[in-house]
Design a protein around this nucleic acid. Structure first.
Length: 707
DNA sequence: AGACTAACTTAGTACAATTGCA
DNA sequence: TGCAATTGTACTAAGTTAGTCT
């Protein structure tokens, strides 16, 4: 059964152009009407029966009226559509920014992997808080055997060392630093000197975190020390000769206004700056930075001439390209120095690479698709905005002289090192570790393990949702059809989004009537559903796919008496769906289907397409695409980021190894091959494996069947 | 039950670095 | 060997999920 689930999807990158066709005619007028945040009604009614009461929601009157007419929603349950749109967002954001995060103990859910609960709760007092992982060298015995049937992570033995002195830690840190820092440089040298032995030795020294046990108490670490983030360099005013003109006349701007103007000038060649929303948002925010005189003069963006600024930046970037080798080397060294100083942290007793240790610099917000906030000013983040997370007994990072952190906290239930609240959407941004870190790798591993468990019960789950297509209850039918789409078409869950805050994109649960078309017959196929919507990142999803008759009939039912802007699945949301999935399998959520189906597809395709008896595990950052000639579509099967060192040395980090595990049990460990090793001789003709990004771009623009 | 949102994963884009071809 | 094409990496936007509060 699993075999017949071909992904018939095709993504067509349409950008904002595509989205135009998706706009509702009366989008603004009717904002209220089709706001996606309205909550679905309490679901009580039986599909057939309906004597339920009609809840009144005055704001939704029109819509509710329509709903009332729905044959199938007879029972009453009009959607409960509570609006909160009109809330004062700014106020909320303000509050959000001001309110400090509360440290709440959270129950760690391990997706069902770790069932044991270690009694070793973690203590927060420095004297008692110095548990270190047993070092890998001394922990060989804890090596995990891979067993498909009963694979489980074992709980990490939590060794608590009392009173680990800062001195000792410092010592280890230094040692580590020396170790890693020198190692890194050495490695490069060795590479150059083709000294294979040393490299090999270093490979062996790599920390095999996956052979160790994991925390089971929900804590993510015992000890965390880092140097804090690197801030964006301060604004450097333009040289006097570079002028801004307003209405043809040169005008000297105040530094804050000039800085924001340079953000615009730097984007002048970009299509963004021609978009009305972008210009409007930019101008509004820019004016906030102006002095009152500037504000009184500069009233029309069209009269602003940034071209001299723009030319200046172009010249600068040109000059950068033309720099001498020495100069370039100097910059490289400086970057390396910053990386060495701020790019690593000590988590438990290992030095780990930080993913993004630089704070996002100020600039203009570039949303994707038709984002209502594009062009808004992303403000400069100051130390006062930053919450630092580290262990109490670590050497806390120092804020830049004369500044303070917003807060220093010690929450080992989370993985981030620093966070701040961003001003565009009011969301929180984090500084976290690199994918090669233990903490990311474990999570990744766990993800694939969950997918592997799904493999064991996917037949049951599919049988179940097929059965549910016949349910008496509308909500169950909707749930079952949605799940079928998620499984068959690899659609995303599709959360509801707050209108006006983001681009109008949807996923499965948030599909609207206008996003599908039903064709009882199309060409020589029956029961064809045509999907046309903007998904994540406003990438257009366009697909025509034949579905089973029952699904088709259900869809017809769901569409009855609905307006184009109404929800297709009006009795469903991601929360309902995921709760259901959780009951079907521990740890199962909608996204697991994507992981599972991508993995199984990769595996099947490799099996089908390769003729050597080996399991290639793709080892480079090159995205690999498999072309399924029978279905006329391409599937992106994988890509990953491999660090420079690994790439050069052809080493694979643990997390990368995990990333490439597919749902099939791999035995002790698969034979690894890189994409480069996946040569034509390994392939069955006439299959095609594409590995280039340029190919991906071609693929993305390709309509299904048009190849 | 729904609103809110913290925390984390996924994924596109820009540009730097590297490769490969004439 | 020089330049165009391709690939790698950093950055950060846009998702998902689950916990908590009302």
């Amino acid at each position: 059964m699993s075999g017949d689930h071909g992904r018939g999807d095709s993504q067509v990158n349409s950008g904002s152009k595509g989205s135009d066709t998706h706009k509702h005619k009366d989008k603004h007028k009717d904002k209220e009407h089709r706001h996606k945040d309205h909550k679905k009604d309490k679901e009580r009614e039986k599909f057939k029966h309906s004597n339920s009461e009609h809840k009144e929601h005055s704001e939704k009157k029109h819509r509710d009226k329509d709903k009332e007419r729905l044959k199938h929603s007879d029972s009453s349950s009009d959607k409960h559509r509570q609006k909160h749109k009109d809330r004062d967002k700014d106020k909320r954001r303000e509050e959000k920014i001001q309110s400090s995060h509360l440290e709440k103990p959270k129950r760690e859910k391990e997706n069902g992997y770790v069932r044991d609960r270690s009694p070793a709760g973690i203590k927060s007092e420095p004297e008692e808080d110095n548990g270190f992982y047993p070092s890998p060298q001394h922990n060989k015995s804890s090596r995990q055997e891979y067993d498909d049937e009963e694979y489980e992570y074992k709980p990490k033995k939590v060794k608590l060392e009392h009173d680990k002195k800062a001195k000792k830690r410092k010592h280890e840190y230094d040692e580590d630093e020396e170790d890693e820092g020198i190692k890194h440089k050495k490695k490069i040298k060795d590479k150059k000197g083709t000294d294979g032995k040393k490299v090999k030795k270093e490979e062996e020294e790599k920390w095999k975190w996956w052979e160790e046990e994991r925390y089971t108490d929900g804590s993510k670490w015992r000890f965390l020390e880092h140097k804090g983030p690197v801030f964006a360099p301060p604004y450097e005013p333009l040289p006097g000769k570079v002028k801004f003109y307003y209405g043809g006349k040169p005008m000297k701007l105040s530094a804050p206004a000039e800085e924001v103007a340079t953000f615009f000038a730097k984007m002048l060649d970009h299509e963004y700056t021609t978009k009305d929303i972008f210009r409007k948002n930019f101008f509004k925010d820019w004016r906030k930075e102006m002095t009152s005189e500037e504000k009184s003069v500069i009233t029309d963006l069209n009269k602003c001439d940034f071209s001299e600024m723009s030319e200046y930046f172009k010249a600068q970037s040109e000059a950068r390209k033309q720099m001498s080798k020495e100069e370039k080397q100097k910059i490289k060294e400086e970057n390396e120095r910053l990386l060495q100083e701020y790019g690593f942290c000590i988590m438990d007793n290992h030095k780990e690479r930080i993913g993004n240790f630089r704070i996002e610099p100020p600039g203009l917000f570039r949303g994707r698709g038709d984002h209502p906030k594009m062009g808004m000013l992303k403000r400069r983040i100051r130390p006062e905005d930053i919450i630092i997370n580290c262990s109490k007994d670590s050497k806390h990072p120092k804020p830049p002289p004369g500044t303070k952190w917003k807060e220093v906290r010690h929450d080992n239930k989370v993985t981030w090192l620093a966070s701040w609240t961003e001003n565009i959407q009011g969301s929180i941004k984090y500084i976290m570790l690199n994918p090669s870190s233990r903490i990311k790798g474990e999570k990744d591993w766990q993800k694939y393990e969950t997918a592997r468990r799904l493999k064991k019960c996917v037949d049951r789950i599919r049988a179940q949702y097929r059965e549910d297509w016949k349910s008496k209850e509308m909500r169950i039918r909707q749930r079952a059809v949605a799940l079928y789409f998620i499984d068959k078409l690899a659609l995303r869950a599709g959360n509801e989004k707050e209108e006006g805050e983001t681009a109008d994109t949807v996923g499965c649960c948030s599909l609207r009537v206008e996003h599908i078309k039903l064709y009882p017959k199309l060409d020589d196929q029956e029961y064809v559903v045509e999907f046309d919507f903007l998904g994540k990142d406003s990438i257009r999803y366009y697909n025509k796919i034949p579905v089973e008759k029952r699904v088709f009939k259900n869809l017809q039912l769901f569409l009855e008496n609905k307006q184009p802007e109404d929800d297709l699945f009006d009795r469903l949301n991601t929360s309902i769906l995921n709760k259901h999935l959780q009951e079907l399998m521990d740890g199962l959520t909608a996204k697991v289907f994507r992981t599972y189906n991508a993995s199984i597809t990769l595996q099947q395709q490799l099996k089908e397409l390769t003729c050597c008896n080996f399991k290639p595990v793709l080892l480079s950052c090159i995205p690999v695409y498999l072309y399924c000639t029978d279905r006329c579509h391409y599937t992106r099967v994988c890509s990953l980021n491999l660090g420079e060192q690994q790439r050069r040395g052809k080493l694979m980090t643990a997390s990368q190894q995990r990333s490439y595990r597919t749902t099939e049990p791999t035995g002790p460990w698969p034979f690894f091959a890189t994409t480069r090793e996946l040569r034509p001789k390994h392939l069955r003709s006439p299959c095609k494996i594409f590995r280039t990004r340029s190919m991906r771009n071609k693929i993305n623009y390709q309509q299904p069947g048009s190849s």
